[in-house]
């Protein structure tokens, strides 16, 4: 356990230093530095005070993976090829989305000590929170990558498409964070509503089983278009696990959906931001 812990900490430090290196090589940009600093502090803060600290960033998704893997393989009997990777990839994307969105809910309250006291571009707070979640995602994705080598998955040229899908996911998450934080200004109950909604969404996002947008069953096809999360997970599995190109229609649809959603959220944030600080 001790040696696994040491390896994980070394891995975490390596990822952190790589990101720092990339940022220091960029031309001096206070805004980028500020967003990175806010994200780093936010990420650090999540694991402050706990005995295992940063190791939780790995244990949490791995723990969920083993539980769901056990249920779907031994109790339900999934026939999906390469199911372990299929599930893990779906889960890390889902955790990325759900945790970021939840933090977005009360971001104006948790960051009020900054927003009220120092002049800052409000959107930077959201960028930083997203970046903080992305650090967590990077840890999980590293574990996925190691696991995919272990399971003998061929690294296909389609892997180059992955960044496009990841950016799509990040845009949608950012939009969701902003929208939830705006709704939370007016309706505090949204926290409880969101907890139920996100549980429902998890089962409709193709985390545990493939949802086919080309299915003859219109209900299944419709589910694939419910949120971009479903389509992004489906396309990511196609390019990373199965070495296929992605479904172009779904890809375009998800990008347009995420961008429109993001701009609508931004519009509402600009309209209600003044009220947000007064009400919080």
């Amino acid at each position: 356990m001790g040696s696994i812990g040491t390896v994980l900490i070394e891995l975490a430090n390596m990822i952190k230093s790589q990101i720092s290196n990339i940022l220091t090589k960029l031309p001096e940009n206070n805004r980028l530095e500020r967003i990175w600093l806010l994200a780093k502090m936010d990420f650090k803060r999540r694991y402050y005070g706990s005995f295992l600290g940063l190791i939780w960033a790995f244990i949490n998704p791995l723990g969920r993976f083993f539980i769901y893997y056990f249920v779907f393989t031994y109790l339900i009997g999934s026939k999906t090829p390469n199911f372990a990777l299929f599930l893990f990839l779906g889960l890390i994307f889902w955790i990325y989305f759900s945790e970021s969105a939840f933090r977005g809910l009360n971001i104006i309250q948790t960051r009020s000590f900054i927003l009220e006291n120092i002049q800052i571009n409000k959107i930077d707070i959201y960028f930083a929170s997203l970046l903080s979640s992305t650090i967590g995602f990077a840890f999980n994705f590293t574990v996925y990558f190691v696991a995919s080598i272990f399971f003998g998955v061929d690294i296909n040229f389609t892997v180059v498409l992955f960044p496009l899908l990841f950016i799509n996911m990040a845009i949608f998450i950012l939009g969701t964070m902003i929208m939830l934080s705006v709704i939370h200004i007016f309706i505090r109950d949204i926290i409880h509503i969101w907890n139920l909604f996100v549980l429902m969404l998890m089962w409709f996002s193709g985390v545990f089983f493939q949802i086919d947008n080309n299915s003859a069953d219109w209900k299944e096809a419709a589910l694939a278009y419910l949120t971009p999360v479903c389509g992004i997970i489906k396309n990511t599995r196609a390019v990373l696990i199965y070495g296929e190109g992605f479904d172009l229609n779904l890809f375009i649809y998800d990008y347009v959906y995420a961008l429109i959603f993001f701009f609508i959220a931004l519009y509402f944030l600009n309209r209600s931001y003044g009220m947000a600080l007064e009400k919080q």
Binding site: N30, E33, R34, L37, L38, M41, R45, Y48, F113, I114, E116, N117, I118, Q119, I120
Partner: peptide, 19 residues
């Protein structure tokens, strides 16, 4: 006006950077 879970050192970096 500070993140109370962060240290003085970290809050200096955070606040000065925002400024």
């Amino acid at each position: 006006g500070f993140d109370t879970e962060l240290t003085a050192h970290e809050n200096i970096f955070l606040n000065a950077s925002i400024l």
